[in-house]
Structure formats: C-alpha cells, structure tokens
Write a protein that binds this DNA or RNA. Structure first.
Length: 884
RNA sequence: GGGCGGUUAACUCAGCGGGAGAGUGCUACCCUCACACGGUAGAAGUCGCUGGUUCGAACCCAGCACCGCCUACCA
C-alpha cells in the first residue's frame, strides 16, 4: 500500500457514490426468501411518495440501517423492506396544485384522467425520496420495493375491507365527522390538530316565544346557531325549574325550538344554557340523538352557508359569523362578548380550520381490534421501547373511537362497495358484482370515496410480503423483528398495524417497537418551513459527508430525548471520521499483508492491552445495539478509537514498528495492529458504512466487501487481559503524571527529561522497569531509573502515583516557587478528598450497615490518599528546606 | 382537565443509590516522521427549589417552580 493512494484527508463524496453502487451491484442488501440463518426483518415506515428527505427520515432510517447492517455482520438473513406511501390527500394536493398552474383542475379532467395524472407525477418525481435514502446509505432490499397503491397491496386492502365488512367491523352511517373544506374530505379524529386560539365567547339571549327573558346561551361559533334545533339545560338546574315555557324562539331564524333537559350540560358554565346544533357539533349530535332532534346542516361542504341558513345562504362561514353577530347586536340579543381562549381543530394536511359536520361515511369499529392489540403488549408479544410509550399506547387504545376511513378524494383505494340504483342495497365485494344481490338489478354504482391512506399502511408489515398469498417471505420474516419509528405516528400507524396484524395474521406485526425522538433545531424548536429553521439533510451530507452525519445522529440519539441538530455538531464528528481515516492511513504504512493466521502469542504489553480493550468495546457496542442505545454504542466506539487506539496504542507501538532489528516483535505487533483495525472497522461499519468500506479495501488480507465480514463476537469478560489492563493503567498514570509536571512547569516539549521512579512496591518497580522504553518514549525522557525509596534527586519536581514517587529532574531550570505552589495545590485537593472519606469512616451507621466490600473500598482509598499526601508533603518539606 | 418528559461545567448532553463525567468551547504550550479536521496539559459544576426515606441521594419518594410535548366531546 502506497501512502500516495491514501489522501491525507478523507474525501467522502466520490467514495460514497462508488461504494453504494458496488453494494447494489453485488446485491449485498438482498434478503433470502428462505435461509438456514436466523431471520431479522424491519419494514420501513414508508415515506410519502411526495416527500423529500427531512431530518426525521434521516434519523429514522439511519437507525434502521445501523440495526440491519449490524445484523448482517452477525450473520443473520436480513430483510429491510422498503417502499413508499401513496399519501392520498397530500399527493392529491400536490398534483392539484400543478394542474392549477397549467390552468386546469381535476374536475375538468375527470376522475380517470386525474388518476392518470397522479401516476404520471409519481413516475416522474416519486423516486426522489428513494434516491435520497440511498444517499443516506440505506441498505434496503430495493428489489422488493413496494408502493401502497401497487396491485398486490391493493388486493390486500380490498380483502381486508371486505372481510371486516362481513365481520360487522366496518359499517356506513350518518355521523358527525371532521370536515376539511379545503381538502373537501372527511378526516379521522386523529387527523385533526388542535391549537389554542384567542377567540370570543358570545352570550346570546334566546327569548321565550312571548318575547320575555328566555335563556342565555354561550358559544364560540355563533354562526352555528342558525342550525340550532334545541336549547338544553341541566335537569336539576335550580335556575330553570319554574320557567313556565317549553320552547324558546331562535333569534334571526324566528324558529320555535324546544327546551330540553340533559345531564350533559354543565351547570357551572355560564348561565347553564346550551344551544344544540346536532349537525355541527359532536356533543350536540349525541344530545340530538337522545332527544330525537332534527339535524339542520347550515354550513355546506364548501364552507359557505346552505339554504337552511335562510337569508345567510351563500355567505362564507366566517363572513356569516360577523353578520350574525352584527344582527344579534342590533336586535339587542347579544348580551356580551368576552375574549376566550379555546382550542380549534385544523386539518393536519393543509392547516385549514376543520368543521364538525354531519356526513355519511364509512367507519371501522375498532374496539374489538384494540382489545387484542392491548393484550399483545400486556403479555409481551410486542415490546415497546422505551417503556414510557407503553402507557401512552394503552391510554389511546382504551379510549379509542370508531375510525372514519372514507375520504372524499380521488387518489387512493376506491372503496369496494356498490349501491344498487334500484333497491338501494349495498354490495361489498372483492370484484365489481354483476348484479344486485337483492333485486338482481344491473344498475350498480361503485362508491366514489377512497380509503384513508393509513388504512393501507396499517397492512404494510404483511401486505408488502405478499399477503393474502402465503408466501415464503411471510413465513421467514413475519412477525418482523423490530419497528423503528417516531412517536408522532404511534397512533396513526403503529397502533393500527398492531390491530390489523393481529386480526389478519393471527400474530403481532413486530416483536419490538423502538420509538425514537424528534430532531429539532439548535434551539430545541421543531423544524418547520414556516419558521425557516429546517436543516436539509442532503445539504449536510454535501458539506460533511454521509458518515459524519450518520454518526452525529447516532451519537445524539439518547432514548427519550429529542435531538438538537446543528451543523456545528456534524462538523465535530467529521473530525472523528478524519481521525479514523488517518489512523488507518498510518496503519497501512506498516501493513503489507493480512495477518489472519498470525500467531498471537508472546505479545507485548500494549498489544495485549489493546486486544483486551477491543474485547471490552465489543461487549459495550453489542450490548448497546441489542437494546437500541445507539448513543452509547457510538460513544463507546468513539472513545475506543480516539482515546485508546489512537492516543495510546498507536503511540505506544511506534518504536516497535520502526525497529527493524526486532523482527519478532515487529511481526506480532503488526498482526495485532491488523486485527484491531479490522475488527474496529467492522464494529464501526453499521454507523459509518462508507469510510469503513473504503478503508477495508485498502487493508491487506481482506476479501470483498466489509459487509461480508464477521462481526467481532462478544466473548464477554473471559477474553479480557485483566493483568495487562492493570499494568498498562499504571504506566499510563505514570506517563500522565510526568506530562503533567512538564505542562505545569512550562517545560518545552522538545526538552528531554531525566526521571527517577522510587517505590517500595516490588511489583510497581518491576513494571516500570520492564516497560521503561514505553515511559521514555511517551513521556519524552532522556533517561529513566527505577529505585527503592531513597535519596531525593536534587532540583526535581515531583508527582505521586500509587506507591511511586516520580522525580522529574529539572537541574538548572526548576522554579521553586512554582513547584511549591503546585504541590500545595495537590495537597489541598487531597485533603478535601480525605475529609469526605474520613467522615464516612467515622460514621457508625456506615461501618455497620454498608456492605463490607464498600467499607473496605473506602478504607483502601483512605490509606492510598494518606500515602500520597504524605509523600507529597515530604517533597514539599524538602523543597522548602533547600530554598531556605 | 388528564398524562408524559426535561431542569447536571459557558454550550449540548451522558450518568439515575456508594469516588460529579463526555464532547464542543475556553486557557497554556507544541506544525514531534497518521492526523493542526492534530497533540499534551489545565481551569471550570451548592447535579432547578423544599422536605422526606437511607449509614449514604444528582440518582428513590412527596411537594413546588420553570420549560417542552402529547391528549381531551371545557359550550
């Protein structure tokens, strides 16, 4: 390997392009339909086909990719199922906007042509997000990519709809739903975003028919009064026990409406009178049902007032509000208007204020499905991680209400229901029926509504694997191993997949659900286009490289905490990638072949030590990844690479590598260096796939892709060299102590020092003696002597490590004042520590109640501290003597 | 209204019953033959507040304060 081929700095872009193409060409992401290996599977949360990659996707898919690559390296047969979601409303909106620019609209085109236009749009732009996922390094099995509107998935949707209908779990009815006037469709309760608004509370007097006082009601939406069909009071409200009237006169409309008694009314709110508008309020709808009230729809599906609104017909709903208020005021019926904060529902797709509206829709009866989905989590078939989401899941499932699944748009799965034009019979079937089941009429019209997009994505874990056919893929990979998703779609998607998976597959869709946090901006604010604080993942990738970006995401992905992202942080981890690159670059200068078969006996201390530390970090990384603690895995390996491998190991072995006279140590050290670098690359590969693959191909003795390597096994603590770790720790402390003296005494790094170590501990002396080259080299010494305690070398600065006193000879350059100061500071620090330790040991309770090993540990600490303090004190005294 | 999370070094965050940690930033010195996207060393914290449990609390419990989020049929 020539250094020329190894650039001084890592340049990601060309490397990323090259290796991604290579992985795809070599089919390294492909899962086997059947395999003797253990199966591991994840289905991707399908991004909207209209989407562009945002930070949430980047985090979500980086995590999945880490897990999948990790499992492949462990030898599993891994399926990461990719695909996109047809995103009914969102996609329709986008295409409609395009049409508007061309001066046309979907109604001019007609349904069929419009759908065609959407498919064309998808052909053209639908792969954008897929390509962006590839930039991120996602190792999905692209050959199996699915789309929720694909033929196979559409069959699954129909099958599910028909079966649920036959089981009585889907029904059609006239109910209050949330209506978006802009998207012109019903929305499920979940699809409504509530937001606090500063509004007004209007108090309106509804007089009795004879014109007397009447009842005062309060409302935030006065325009709905036009559709009132009753006024309700609480049956026990003392204020209304003797009113002597059964009706009031609805102002503006001059309609007599009944006064009804219903315990839903809150007596403590306002005057205790409640206007009832069954067609425009969910509560009122229920009250209306209880009291057989008529429902008058005064707001149309377009958002303007209907003929039922009398003279207000045709006004926009908000204009109408102004008009109604003005008219009431003129008639003296507006008692007062007060500012009022209340929450207003908005469409989650277009942010328009939604209106509760009476409408004929299709619903899924979810209670029975939810019960099983609750049970599956209760009995552990599916585990939600972190656990805090479990309660949120239960809470929602327990309070679940029927799911409105019909949407009045064109882009989506058309509901497989046909109405007979002659007898009104409804036929629900997989295929268009030839004739009406009831009257044999051929006059059948298919339902024009389509299904909620989430209806099809609820089937994703099995529909993508070929269901309703019994495919080998399902057998191998269902239930999936894990689902990785953000909490924002816990209800939308996760809960519904649970219900559908259990109902149709008889098994939960995933064994574990890892719920991750949100990516926010630097200030912790949610990223949004309107705030202008979005960071585009692709621009981050452009600037810093995919690996640096991925490692940043992993490093900050602590469970249960949002990630605050800034480019500065990515830059920090770019340094890490570069560090790794240069460590490899250095290593390559000394490795000309593979050392797979090398005999690793008779190793030097640093060699034994680094192998032991490698073992340790392997345990840490595997344990962390097995429990979705991505940040801990990333942190562990970061520390290992930078601070153990680079800072200590590479520095420690340099003499051996450059010493051509000692072929034996040279070769064994090279072998260890090779082994450690190789395993480190494999450990790192799931996090930073590109740079590790690139280095892998520079590393002699490797064959093919790093993706085919074997992940270092977690052989637990048994392979640790405890002795080597302890010895190395001692040497590191000695070296650090000497460096500390150098730093604090302001001695030029170029000046070689003479050092004497004195210790009455034979073991300490032996280790320092045996590894004096290491100390000399790493602490930049000209000489090192190791002695029994004795005469203190003249003009020296001192440090104490364990039982050893370290004398750094500073003949001619010692600054006694500085040294005195330094030692006094050290003693002061020790004294503080000794106080806390002594306090413990003087505490009777501690001595009797604390575990023996804890007490023993504190005792040992005390004696160590005392010894150290005393040694430093002695040195301090000596200096003062000399000085005096 | 109900629930959840957060509050630890200047910043970002780990730690969650027995020695207050990391990264970034900061200070000093250094272009030492992998890396200045670097090296060596250093300074820096009543672990939000108040009580309680415990021999021992950043960590467990209760209350409070302030942020953030989710949820809800409060007209």
């Amino acid at each position: 390997m020539s250094i020329k081929e190894f650039a001084k700095g890592y340049e990601p872009h060309e490397v990323e392009k090259r290796w991604y193409a290579y992985w795809e060409k070599e089919q390294l992401f492909t899962a086997e339909d059947q395999s003797p290996q253990a199966s591991y599977s994840i289905v991707i949360p399908p991004p909207n086909v209209t989407g562009v990659l945002h930070m949430g996707h980047a985090l979500n898919n980086t995590m999945q990719d880490i897990l999948c690559r990790y499992r492949r390296l462990r030898g599993d047969n891994v399926l990461w199922m990719p695909g996109t979601d047809h995103a009914g409303i969102a996609t329709q909106n986008v295409v409609e906007k395009n049409l508007a620019q061309e001066g046309t609209d979907r109604h001019q085109l007609g349904r069929e042509k419009f759908i065609e236009a959407v498919w064309q749009w998808r052909e053209k732009y639908g792969s954008a997000i897929i390509n962006q996922l590839k930039r991120l390094g996602a190792s999905c099995d692209w050959g199996r990519e699915r789309f929720t509107m694909d033929k196979g998935l559409s069959i699954a949707v129909r099958k599910v709809f028909v079966q649920l209908y036959e089981e009585g779990l889907i029904y059609r009815g006239n109910y209050i739903i949330n209506w978006c006037h802009r998207c012109h469709t019903a929305l499920a309760d979940l699809e409504v975003e509530h937001e606090e608004h500063d509004g007004h509370l209007y108090h309106i007097r509804y007089p009795f028919p004879d014109g007397s006082d009447g009842i005062v009601v309060a409302t935030t939406r006065p325009e709905t009064m036009l559709g009132d069909t009753a006024v309700a009071i609480h049956p026990e409200d003392p204020r209304y026990q003797n009113i002597g009237h059964d009706t009031v006169l609805l102002p503006l409309m001059n309609r007599e409406i009944p006064i009804i008694k219903d315990s839903y009314v809150d007596m403590s709110f306002g005057t205790g009178g409640l206007k009832v508008t069954p067609a425009h309020d969910p509560n009122d709808f229920e009250i209306g049902a209880r009291h057989n009230l008529a429902s008058l729809k005064v707001i149309s599906d377009n958002g303007d007032m209907t003929a039922e609104a009398g003279s207000y017909e045709g006004l926009d709903r908000f204009e109408c509000r102004q008009a109604v208020v003005k008219d009431l005021d003129q008639q003296g019926l507006l008692i007062k208007v007060e500012p009022y904060k209340h929450s207003v529902g908005h469409c989650y797709r277009c942010k328009t204020v939604v209106e509760p509206n009476l409408s004929k829709q299709w619903f899924v009866r979810v209670k029975p499905l939810a019960e099983k989905a609750i049970a599956a989590v209760k009995n552990g078939e599916t585990k939600i991680i972190p656990d805090m989401w479990t309660n949120t899941y239960y809470d929602w499932m327990y309070n679940i209400r029927d799911w409105c699944v019909s949407r009045q748009i064109w882009w989506g799965h058309q509901i497989p229901a046909w109405t007979c034009g002659d007898c009104g019979e409804i036929v629900v079937a997989m295929e268009a029926p030839q004739a009406c089941q009831a009257c044999d009429s051929k006059n059948l019209v298919q339902e024009t509504d389509v299904l909620d997009t989430w209806f099809s994505s609820a089937l994703w874990p099995f529909s993508t694997m070929g269901w309703p056919q019994e495919t080998p893929l399902l057998k191998t990979f269902y239930p999936t191993s894990a689902l990785v998703t953000g909490f924002d779609i816990l209800f939308f998607w996760v809960a519904r997949m649970m219900m559908m998976g259990i109902h149709f597959m008889g098994q939960v869709p995933f064994k574990e659900v890892y719920v991750h946090a949100l990516v926010r901006d630097e200030a912790g604010k949610k990223m949004s286009k309107s705030k202008g604080n979005v960071i585009d993942p692709l621009s981050v990738i452009e600037r810093y490289g995919t690996d640096a970006f991925r490692f940043t995401l992993a490093a900050f992905a602590a469970q249960g905490r949002d990630i605050k992202m800034s480019e500065k942080r990515v830059d920090g981890y770019r340094h890490f990638i570069n560090k790794l690159w240069n460590a490899a670059r250095f290593s390559m200068m000394h490795l000309d072949r593979g050392y797979e078969a090398a005999n690793l006996q008779n190793l030097s201390l640093p060699d034994k030590w680094i192998l032991s530390r490698l073992q340790h970090v392997t345990s840490e990384v595997t344990a962390a990844l097995d429990s979705y603690r991505f940040n801990e895995a990333a942190g562990a390996i970061y520390n290992f690479v930078w601070h153990e491998f680079c800072d200590w190991y590479l520095e420690a072995i340099k003499p051996a590598l450059y010493d051509n006279d000692r072929r034996d140590t040279l070769e064994s050290t090279r072998a260890v260096l090779w082994r450690v670098l190789r395993d480190t690359l494999v450990l790192l590969h799931p996090f930073i796939p590109f740079v590790t693959e690139e280095i892998w191909h520079h590393l002699p003795g490797t064959d093919g892709s790093i993706m085919k390597a074997v992940h270092p096994v977690d052989a637990a603590e048994s392979n640790r060299h405890q002795k080597a770790e302890a010895e190395m720790a001692l040497l590191m402390e000695v070296i650090t102590a000497i460096r500390n003296v150098r730093g604090e005494m302001n001695i030029a790094p170029s000046l070689s020092l003479q050092v004497q170590v004195q210790s009455d501990d034979r073991h300490t002396r032996k280790i320092c003696q045996a590894h004096q080259d290491l100390i000399i080299n790493l602490a930049r010494l000209s000489s090192l002597t190791v002695e029994n305690p004795g005469q203190r070398p003249k003009s020296s600065a001192t440090a104490v490590v364990n039982s050893a006193s370290i004398f750094v000879s500073l003949e001619g350059i010692i600054d006694f004042a500085k040294e005195t100061q330094r030692l006094e500071r050290a003693i002061k620090k020790l004294a503080a520590e000794l106080t806390t330790v002594a306090k413990k040991l003087e505490n009777e309770g501690f001595l009797t109640k604390a575990p023996a090993d804890v007490v023993e540990k504190v005792r040992q600490k005390q004696s160590a501290l005392l010894e150290k303090q005393q040694k430093i004190q002695t040195n301090l005294d000596k200096i003062k003597e000399v000085e005096a």
